[in-house]
Design a protein around this nucleic acid. Structure first.
Length: 119
DNA sequence: CGACTGACACTAT
DNA sequence: TATAGTGCCAGTC
């Protein structure tokens, strides 16, 4: 605890900022934190975040839109169901309309859909 | 203190 | 285009 706590805190802060019906990737979060290579750490932070209800970890997926962390949720399809309930379409643990629901952590306004060509 | 692990991402084959 | 291997940072054993 101490410095690392800050790191985790940042990750949580970003994840909490994810709007309803939107998702983001570990890499983008890591990039937002200033460490693209620490994408794995984001996932690790999520692991610890699993203990925190205020963190919508189900809105965090890998860059392929694949629900890699769904296995870490209680139910088998809990993560998928949560996302689907938010209007996100998932097929075979993969987000179909990924580019539509993809959201990038930004300090600016919440915006809506400026990132279409990014992926 | 050293080694292994991990909810990823990128590059190369 | 798909699969395999490597790099990365932080935490835990």
């Amino acid at each position: 605890m101490s410095i690392s706590e800050n790191f985790f805190e940042r990750v949580y802060n970003v994840v909490r900022k994810i709007p309803y019906g939107k998702v983001t990737s570990y890499g983008e979060i890591a990039k937002f934190l200033g460490a693209v290579r620490s994408a794995r750490m984001v996932g690790w932070a999520m692991n610890a975040a699993h203990n925190d209800d205020t963190i919508p970890a189900h809105r965090v997926v890998n860059k392929q839109g694949l629900l890699t962390g769904k296995h870490h949720f209680d139910g088998t399809n809990l993560m998928q169901q949560l996302l689907e309930s938010e209007g996100i379409i998932i097929k075979n643990n993969k987000i179909i309309n990924f580019n539509e629901v993809f959201w990038i952590p930004k300090k600016k306004s919440p915006i809506n859909n400026p990132y279409n060509e990014n992926i």
